[in-house]
């Protein structure tokens, strides 16, 4: 029995040695002995009663039992909760983003990505009364704008104004400047969440990263190194979803200036984080402030996205759209003096 395996399964060294003495030296042995133990009803076990538990844990670690879909569904429903973004986008996504999912908001600068991130944080803080973490790579978090957004969400939810101030205390902002810090921070959050020691992280429901692309872009020109960073950060984000957290990330649209001049805008604009990043998100929404369709759902496990794509092409400017929501919901910043 490899000591490393026994250690990762959480066995003590005595347990590992006892298993080795009983002839269990590999995973195959463990599985075999376990199956003989469970099928042979009266036969005395090759291992003592004390070590049957160790064997069971080892088997669960090496070959976890398959879980039926309905059991998974019940488990997930018991744990997961719905995080809302804004009315129009929620309708598009089938209710919002669940904890355990990654929502990606892609769009040009000024299309409302950061605003939607703020709106989602506000919903978490006010509606779920849970905590949210805003990872700010581009210094785009404005507390004044977030206060306005919280006030607006509170009005929409018919909550008294007194609830806005506590909501602001539930949201924390971290300013990070490079990919290294983003990766370190995400791992820190995952570890803190798994340790269950810090009450703040136990009530965390949402992590917003606005935007990973800004931290990664300086590295992308370096070929493989940039690619490795994309994979590192996308895995760190996926790891957060396994801790029952909702994750919202933004992605940029970039395009060469040459193409802009030739009028090939839509065709040439592409996602800043492209194919290696694609696997990160469960849902991707394209935001477009200039086009009438407003938002397009491009990939989603919960909603039939192709149907929407067709509808979005046909819909005229009078259809409900996120673009209009962005325009209408941004209250004038008169008290920003």
């Amino acid at each position: 029995m490899a000591g490393l395996l026994a250690h990762s399964a959480g066995l003590s060294s005595e347990q590992a040695e006892a298993l080795a003495r009983a002839g269990v030296t590999s995973v195959c042995d463990a599985l075999l002995v376990a199956s003989v133990d469970s099928t042979a009803t009266r036969a005395p076990s090759a291992l003592g009663v004390v070590h049957a538990d160790a064997l069971k844990r080892l088997v669960e670690h090496c070959a976890p039992a398959l879980v039926p879909a309905d059991v998974l569904w019940v488990r997930r429903k018991a744990k997961a909760c719905m995080v809302r973004t804004c009315t129009e986008l929620d309708a598009l996504m089938g209710g919002g983003v669940m904890t355990g999912e990654v929502l990606e908001l892609a769009g040009r600068s000024g299309s409302g990505k950061t605003w939607l991130c703020l709106a989602t944080c506000a919903h978490v803080a006010l509606e779920l009364r849970a905590h949210a973490l805003f990872v700010d790579t581009g210094a785009n978090f404005c507390a004044r704008a977030f206060l306005e957004e919280c006030s607006r969400v509170a009005r929409a939810l018919d909550l008294p104004d007194e609830q806005v101030a506590p909501a602001l205390r539930r949201v924390r902002v971290v300013r990070v400047s490079d990919a290294d810090e983003v990766a370190a921070l995400l791992e820190h959050v995952r570890a803190a969440r798994a340790a269950k020691a810090d009450a703040w992280y136990s009530r965390l429901a949402l992590v917003v990263v606005d935007s990973p692309a800004l931290a990664l872009m300086p590295l992308l020109a370096r070929g493989n190194a940039g690619h490795a960073w994309i994979v590192t950060i996308s895995r760190a984000l996926r790891a957060l979803t396994h801790c029952n957290l909702a994750v919202v990330v933004t992605n940029h649209l970039v395009g060469a200036e040459v193409a802009l001049r030739e009028g090939l805008i839509e065709d040439s604009a592409r996602l800043a984080l492209g194919s290696s990043w694609r696997a990160v998100s469960d849902m991707r929404v394209y935001l477009d402030a200039a086009r009438p369709s407003g938002a397009t759902l491009a990939a989603a496990p919960t909603a039939p996205c192709t149907a929407w794509l067709e509808r979005s092409h046909r819909s005229g400017p009078r259809e409900g759209s996120v673009r209009r929501a962005v325009a209408a919901r941004r209250a004038p910043a008169s008290d920003c003096q």
């Binding site: 507390a143 004044r144 949201v171 300013r175 820190h188």
Partner: peptide, 23 residues
Amino acid sequence: MEQPGELRFDRASDLLERHRTRL
């Protein structure tokens, strides 16, 4: 829980005053 590196976790409410300054 130890914080990674030099990163600062600010509450949004604490940033309100700092984000008020304008030129």
